[in-house]
Amino acid sequence: MPSTVENALFDYRPITERPAINWPGGAKVAFYLGLNVEHFLLDRPSTSIWPGTVDLVPDALNYGWRDYGARVGIWRTIESLDRHGIRASVLLNSDVATHYPQIIKAGLSRNWAWLAHGRTNSILQANMPIDEERRFLTDVVDTIADATGQRPHGWMGPGLTETFNTPKLLAELGLSYLLDWTNDDQPYRLNVPDMISVPYSVELNDLMLFGKGTTGPEFVQIVKDQYEQLRADSEHSGRVMALALHPFSIGQPFRHKYLDQALEFLAAQPDIWLTTSDEIAEHFEHA
């Protein structure tokens, strides 16, 4: 049966038929690091490393694997970010503000960008009725604003989930961009007033890569290959490179040196703009 649902959120416009994007300082590739800082519920399944115990309550194996990120992994990751002068674009579950205030404090001292990322990654947003979703989004955004002193500009849904109402509800709350639609190497305007899409990646993403058996040296090479191809593509119009990280994955001890090597490579590139998703969105909107 043919689909009766048309995509009204954005139009098709190939990358070959757009005005040129010029990044600050003549940079060719705008790079941001999307750091997923999340809270998980003890009695609900979520991202897992082992499927055999996901239906148990408590699921000590998978919950503990996820919880490593907030307890240990993020602090190791912060060391690399600081070493290479990279500010995180934090995809923040609002429950983090209650459960891990030390992470908020560390991010505030480093001027991280804060994006709303739902309440917890144990609860997806799909199929919420509009009034329930409006209350939910308002609570998430207000909680993050209270905890960070900054009202978020960007959004990524837990599991990259939305409803058909999400973009317009976020616009009502003053947000200006989404990361959920991973379909481009450049920002583009949505058919919602004052709302754009900024590139994110489910491919250049530690969960996807390491979940498929990618090794540390292979991860470094993949980061290099991604940058080099985007740099080649950007000869006449700028591109965006997003690196998606989760502290419970990239923060494992045996992966740490490879993240450091990847960031060292990126920080040394003469044509890169080391920035945040907030600054990418703002520059695109006002160019």
Rank of each mutant, 00 (worst) to 15 (best):
V220W: 07
P19I: 01
F210P: 10
L35W: 09
A106S: 12
P2Q: 12
V96R: 02
D271G: 03
D271F: 06
V192G: 07
I86D: 08
E285C: 12
R231C: 11
I123N: 09
D185S: 10
A30E: 07
L173D: 12
L81G: 08
L160N: 09
G107Y: 02
T4H: 09
E132G: 07
V202C: 04
I123R: 11
D225W: 03
A113P: 02
S122R: 05
R255T: 05
L108W: 01
L263M: 06
I103W: 03
E6Q: 14
L259R: 05
D278G: 01
Q125V: 15
F40R: 02
P167N: 05
F210K: 12
Q226L: 00
W65Y: 15
V5W: 08
E282K: 14
R66V: 06
L33F: 13
N93C: 15
L175P: 06
M195I: 12
D146Y: 03
G211N: 12
A268E: 12
R110M: 10
H99E: 14
A268G: 13
V57H: 05
H283D: 10
G107W: 02
A242Q: 12
G251P: 02
Y100P: 00
A27N: 15
S48E: 11
E132R: 06
L207F: 12
L173T: 12
Q186R: 15
E264F: 00
A262N: 07
G69L: 02
G157L: 06
Q221F: 00
T166D: 10
D146N: 11
L274N: 04
N205Y: 09
V198A: 08
L91H: 08
R110G: 07
T166N: 10
H256M: 08
N7F: 01
H246C: 04
Y32P: 02
L263T: 03
E133R: 09
G251A: 01
P129S: 00
V54K: 13
K224G: 03
E17P: 00
D43H: 15
V198R: 07
D131V: 10
K224M: 11
Y258M: 04
L230P: 03
G118P: 12
H84F: 15
Q252L: 14
L9M: 06
V72K: 04
R18Q: 14
W65L: 02
N7G: 02
